[in-house]
Every structure is written in C-alpha cells, then in structure tokens.
Design a protein around this nucleic acid. Structure first.
Length: 213
DNA sequence: AACTCGGGGCA
DNA sequence: TGCCCAGAGTT
C-alpha cells in the first residue's frame, strides 16, 4: 500500500480545516436532509441564508406539511430552482410521516427513493447524520479528485469508488467535507488559488497552468 | 453514460 | 451573456 502521499494530502487538508463539520446549518437528521435537498445546484452560502428562518417555522416533517408548499417556497425563493425543491421537500416530508414514522431512514435505498434525493445527497446524510463511511461526490470533490490524481474518474460514481478504496479509514468520515471545502475555497473551477493551495505538491496540473491568463 | 432541467448570483 | 453552484431524474 503506497498510499503515504494520500495520508500526507489529507493531513494537509485537515490542518487547513481543523474543525470539520458540515458547512450546512442543521440541528437534526431531518434538517440536514432538507438542507441537502436545498443545496442541489445552489451555493452553501445561499442555503445557510434561508435554512435558519425555514427551520424556525418547520423543523420536522409534520410542521413542514403544515407550512405548505407556498409557505415553503416563500422561505427558499432566493435559492433558485425553488419550485422543484419545494415540491420535493413537501412530498418527501409526507413520505417520512407515512412510511418512516416521521424519521429519516438510515439506508441508501430508502434515502435515494425520496424525491429530490440522489446518490450524492444520500451519501451526505448517511455520513454526517449516521456516521457511515460514505463519500459524497459533488462537482467540487469530482474536480479536486481529478486535478490531484487522488481518485481520477470520468463519472462521479467512478470517483466515489476510488475514494472509498484509497482513502485511509481514519480520514473517510471527513474526506468529502475537506475535499468540498478545498474545492469551494481554493481549488475553484475557474480561477483556483494555487499560491495558497496546501496540497499543490500533489497537483497534476502543475501549479497555475489552468488559471485564467 | 449522456442529456436535460432549472433559476439566482456573479463576473 | 456565460459560467457556476455541496445534483437529480430521465433517456
């Protein structure tokens, strides 16, 4: 197992973010689930802007159903894609009440069967809410994994599979969070901040070569 | 595996 | 305008 450089890479990422915790605002598995559904194709900043107000009105499935689709839409309007998200969260809340005693299920199959919840969101809930060693691959993780050569792959599923294989168990619980933060704040899609990158030693792109001229 | 959808935000 | 955002659903 010549994965010593992977340990060094994650150690560097951990040092850059000593207190790993979800960037999303939530107090319960249900709030996390809602925040994750809202986060699809929206920024974490935007989600954190609306969730405190939303959860003050509805922090469980029953109160969400009571809030209703119009009330929900009003709370999340600034996110974009609010029509689908409001519909999905309401439908999902009803399913939790009817089929899961109002609780958030802790299996991949159950989570992915909920409207608005795909593989990435299910992985986040399993990891953050239930402590399962999953890795959620979003656009950030996908980009960083390919740029560094940590887990190159043409599809998110391929990257996820490689990460599960190569990331040491001690880092697995927080791997996706660190990779996401790095992709969000340093290894951005367009103009990465290579000068301040703590893992540039392992970058396949060789410094700033993909930076806008 | 590739395509489509969806809307605010920001350069 | 064009590209991006802690993707999902369909073909």
């Amino acid at each position: 197992m010549e994965n010593y450089w992977i340990i060094a890479l994650f150690s560097a990422l951990r040092e850059a973010n000593p207190q790993p915790k979800s960037a999303l605002f939530f107090h319960s598995p249900y709030e996390l689930l809602v925040a994750v559904v809202l986060s699809a194709q929206s920024t974490d900043v935007g989600v954190n802007r609306v969730t405190p107000g939303l959860f003050a009105l509805a922090s469980d499935p029953a109160s969400m159903v009571r809030l209703g689709e119009d009330g929900l839409r009003e709370q999340i309007r600034s996110l974009g894609l609010y029509n689908n998200k409001a519909k999905n969260i309401l439908a999902l809340s009803r399913i939790l009440l009817e089929e899961y005693h109002g609780q958030v299920p802790d299996t991949r199959e159950a989570l992915e069967s909920l409207p608005g919840v795909g593989r990435k969101s299910a992985n986040v809930v399993l990891n953050v809410a239930f402590g399962h060693p999953t890795v959620a691959v979003d656009t950030h993780v996908f980009r960083v994994a390919n740029r560094t050569g940590l887990a190159p792959g043409k599809t998110p599923e391929a990257v996820e599979k490689k990460l599960l294989q190569c990331v040491p168990e001690e880092f697995l619980l927080h791997a996706h969070h660190w990779l996401i933060l790095h992709g969000r704040h340093v290894c951005m899609a367009r103009k990465p901040n290579c000068e301040n990158c703590c893992i540039r030693t392992w970058c396949l792109m060789g410094g700033n070569q993909f930076k806008d001229k």
